[in-house]
Amino acid sequence: MKILVAAKRVVDYNVKVRVRSDHSGVETANVKMSMNPFDEIAVEEAIRFKEAGHGDEVVVASIGPRQCEEVLRTALAMGADRGVLVRSDAALEPLAVARLLGVLAEREKSDLILLGKQAIDDDANQTGQMLAALLGWAQGTFACRLEAVQDGLRVTREIDGGLETLFMPLPAVVTADLRLNEPRYPKLPNIMKAKKKPLETLDGDSLGVDISPRLHTLRVSAPEPRKGGVRVTDVAELVDRLRNEAKVL
């Protein structure tokens, strides 16, 4: 089984973003960037699948500027076999990313594509579903458990009411939720080894894919801050204020 994993470079999980004063977006200059945490879970799952004897090769792909190589090196240090960087300096929307990944999947003859359920920057939660649609494959979104079974996969999904388990034949696209696994920290010798693993660069404009933006971002603003609250001294004061001031009890 050939596994393709997609990993996005995003503003680090711990950074509190600031909106630019001209409202054109959020400040990303001199901000720590790292792999989208959900994609990290997807990378980990792909590697575990291979380690369990279900996969022959784990290829990790990232789409974006040159610096996405760092994300790929991290995935290679975790245990992926090979990296592909699709270079593009354009601001790519999920549909464009799905199209580019679709081309890669055909080129790599992938049987299973794993990616995070959403990226923590645009919070769109679309790419995996769109990719499955474009390829005509089954989709298992928000996965918290993945099992290889005869002729396909059993995917347990986190849904609003609890859990749902689906069977799907391969090829398929699976998107990772938080509790699918806990990603490993790359060990130093593996980080060194990762530097020698193959990393190919493709030009995003040469793949024959329409990546033009469909959405115009007119304005990005900071949400209304909540008005500062008060500290109450004890339970009696809290109950009194909830009842008589806030009128919610």
Binding site: V11, K16, V17, V19, V26, I120, D121, D122, D123, R214, L215, H216, T217, L218, R219, V220, S221, A222, P223
Partner: peptide, 13 residues
């Protein structure tokens, strides 16, 4: 976007 730390106004074409 960004876990609600920013609000984007977008127009679909």
């Amino acid at each position: 976007i960004y876990a609600g730390n920013a609000l984007a106004t977008v127009r679909s074409t």
